[in-house]
Design a protein around this nucleic acid. Structure first.
Length: 487
RNA sequence: GACCCCAUCGUCUAGUUAGGUCUAGGACAUCAGGUUUUCAUCCUGAAAACACGGGUUCGAAUCCCGUUGGGGUCACCA
């Protein structure tokens, strides 16, 4: 392979989950490498020993795989490469570029720095604005600035694509490259992803929501969690464990920030890639929906925008809904099964193979996330006596008009009882016939029935619902509903 | 505060590099109708932007300057 071949890298610090902004950086770096027929490298910048963790690194790798971003080399860990940084440091020291300072080593920023960024263009910072900075900490570890420059050079990285929070740091990296004698890579900084209110999208947002809710609910920790909770509530930290605990206890919907959050919410990886690619990049013209292959074919650095963009969950949601609807049944069923297996295993235990197919069919074309069937279809896996009835729905569809709905239910029950063999379409046909005989529209019968068997006014089409529930369960549910609500 | 960066509908953006074809196009959201047994869809339509002020030019969303607003950096974090 020629030495001029493109090499990009994604170099996260393993200090938490893969953030949506990090995912986009990873996606762009990947897409550029693939577009150029180059190599894509993963490297963990774990020189901060206190904050880095193996678990975090594993999770990040898992998320990258889930997103479909395969890599050619690595993962490398800077903490395993400490000896490689010593030679450049010694060189800098000997050449007078660096000096010892209270056990650490600093680099002298002596000159004006000019560098070119493929997105932002020419950047110039005068020497008087620049300060000397640490390249080797007292614990012997290199700082990010030194390690990033050395590793990029050693790994023959040609293009550094990263968030624009590093734009000013790049003066340090350019100076370091020049002083050590490394060729400078091409830098391309990407704009930031912001919340809808314009604030920076960060993990802290989850902590904020959890803290506010915990305070409002006057949540008290128990035993060993009490101290962690109170520290968290006093804003001493953003303890992710506490955040999860609070969310669990208060049944809170936390804002999705990390890739794992979006996976949990039921977004498809290809949709997430599509949407985040659109935040700061587009292929030109009116094309908005595309897959990774298209991205690879069209991706170019010069179409990356300079301005920050706000993350619009509603647009992502619509993209996801449309993708889910356009899937074939078997694609949808398989994706749903995978999702339930991870997040709602009880569905797979309670639904037999054939029932699962019916469940998937019921939500195919109507679910907008893979999590929606589990949220909206809980009644399918509950036993009749576990059902709760929505008071408003009961009042409106059953009790109103001297219990007209209850009468309908009794009539339906007796008709269903004699229906043999049972099938969704037969039950549906029966309701239709009855409606015609009684000169009512379908809703007058279907809605009371829906309330009786699901507890609410919302469910998949009545025939699919009848089919999945089965005759016995439908009759039981009607009986139970009449017993509980009409008394 | 200093420095760096940015600025088109509510949001993401096309258009800016080569000024006229832009009374500014698309998408999401919103609103109004229609379809639908619920929900989810689907169809039709509407409203909606070149931040402001100067300049250059026959002509500026596009080039220049300033103002305002936003973001970032200024750690022995990355």
């Amino acid at each position: 392979m020629p030495t001029s071949a493109v090499v990009t890298r994604f170099a996260p610090s393993p200090t938490g989950e893969l953030h949506i902004g990090g995912a986009r950086t990873a996606l762009f770096s990947w897409a550029f490498a693939r577009a150029q027929g180059g190599r894509y490298v993963i490297r963990f910048e774990d020189t901060d020993r206190a904050r880095s963790s193996d678990l975090s690194a594993e999770n990040i790798l898992h998320d990258l795989r889930w997103l479909g971003l395969d890599w050619d080399d690595g993962p490398f860990y800077q903490s395993h490469r400490l000896d490689l940084y010593e030679e450049p440091i010694r060189h800098l020291l000997e050449a007078g570029h660096a000096y010892e300072d209270d056990g650490a080593i600093r680099f002298r920023m002596e000159r004006d720095i000019d560098f070119h960024d493929d997105v932002y263009g020419h950047i110039r910072v005068e020497a008087k604005q620049l300060e000397d900075f640490v390249i080797r900490k007292t614990d012997g570890f290199p700082t990010f600035h030194l390690a990033v420059v050395v590793d990029d050079a050693l790994m023959n990285v040609t293009h550094v694509i990263r968030g624009q929070e590093h734009l000013t740091n790049t003066t340090k990296h350019a100076a370091l490259c020049d002083a050590i004698g490394y060729p400078r890579p091409v830098w391309a900084h990407t704009p930031s992803i912001m919340n809808s209110d314009g604030s920076k999208m960060s993990k802290r947002d989850k902590a904020k929501v959890a803290r506010r809710a915990a305070l409002a609910a006057d949540l008290q920790g128990v035993d060993c969690t009490a101290e962690r909770l109170s520290k968290f509530l006093e804003k001493k930290n953003d303890d992710a464990g506490v955040v999860a605990m609070v969310a669990e206890q208060l049944d809170l919907q936390l804002p999705e920030i990390d890739v794992a959050d979006f996976r949990h919410s039921g977004y498809l990886p290809e949709v997430l890639c599509n949407y985040i690619a659109l935040l700061g990049w587009n292929p030109g013209g009116d094309v908005e929906r595309f897959d990774r292959q298209f991205l690879v074919e069209r991706f170019a650095l010069d179409r990356i925008n300079k301005a920050n963009s706000r993350f619009d969950r509603k647009k992502l949601f619509r993209f996801n809904a449309d993708m889910l609807q356009s899937m074939t049944f078997s694609q949808f069923r398989d994706s749903l099964r995978k999702h339930l297996a991870i997040y709602h295993e009880s569905y797979l235990h309670k639904l037999s193979g054939c029932q699962f197919d019916q469940f998937a069919e019921a939500y195919h074309g109507r679910a907008r996330t893979l999590d929606e069937p589990a949220q909206l279809g809980a009644f399918f896996i509950l036993s009749p006596d576990q059902l709760t009835y929505d008071a408003t729905a009961v009042k409106k569809n059953l009790a109103k008009n001297d219990g007209a709905g209850f009468a309908m239910l009794r009539e339906l029950r007796s008709q269903f009882n004699s229906l043999d063999p049972w099938s969704g379409s037969a039950a549906h046909e029966m309701i239709k016939q009855l409606a015609e005989t009684m000169q009512l529209n379908m809703g007058k019968l279907a809605q009371p029935l829906r309330v009786a068997v699901t507890g609410t006014t919302v469910s998949p089409p009545i025939d699919l619902t009848m089919a999945l529930l089965g005759k016995d369960s439908v009759l039981e549910r009607i009986d139970h509903c009449l017993a509980v609500t009409s008394g």
